[in-house]
C-alpha cells in the first residue's frame, strides 16, 4: 500500500463505483441463472462471480496498488488452487471403467 503517495480519500469514488458494480453484477448473475442455457449457466455464473471477485480484490482489498511481494504470494496461492481444481477434474474425467 503506497499510502504516502495516495490520499486515501481519493479512493472513495472508486469504492462507490465498485459498490454499484458489485450489486449490479449480483443481480445479473441471478437473472442469468433463470435463462435456459443448460450447462452454460455455470459458465456465465462463474464468469460474473469472477469479475466481482476481481473488483473486490483489486479495489476494495487494494490488491492493484499492492507491492510485488503480495502479488507473488497471491499468484502462488492462485496457481495452487487452480492446480488443485484442474487436476481434480482431470482425475475425475480419466478413470478406468468409467460409467456415467
Amino acid at each position: 500500500m503506497s499510502e504516502d503517495i495516495h490520499d486515501p480519500r481519493k479512493q472513495v469514488p472508486a469504492y462507490i463505483k465498485v459498490f454499484g458494480l458489485l450489486l449490479l453484477l449480483a443481480v445479473i448473475n441471478v437473472a442469468a441463472s433463470y435463462l435456459p442455457l443448460g450447462g452454460g449457466n455455470i459458465g456465465v455464473g462463474l464468469l460474473v462471480a469472477g469479475v466481482q471477485a476481481i473488483l473486490a480484490l483489486g479495489i476494495l482489498m487494494h490488491f492493484f496498488s499492492e507491492n510485488k511481494t503480495v502479488h507473488h504470494l497471491m499468484a502462488l496461492a492462485l496457481a495452487s488452487v487452480v492446480a488443485l481444481l484442474v487436476i481434480f477434474v482431470c482425475c475425475y474425467a480419466d478413470q478406468l471403467n468409467f460409467v456415467k
Binding site: 495452487s80 492446480a83 487436476i87 482431470c90 482425475c91 474425467a93 480419466d94 478413470q95 478406468l96 471403467n97 468409467f98
Partner: peptide, 21 residues
C-alpha cells in the same frame, strides 16, 4: 511436490493419461 500426489493412488483405477501425467 504439489502436483505428484496421485502416484499414491495408481491402484485406484486411474486412467492412463492421468497416470502418465
Amino acid at each position: 511436490s504439489m502436483i505428484v500426489w496421485a502416484h499414491h493412488m495408481y491402484m485406484t483405477g486411474m486412467g492412463q493419461s492421468i497416470t502418465t501425467f
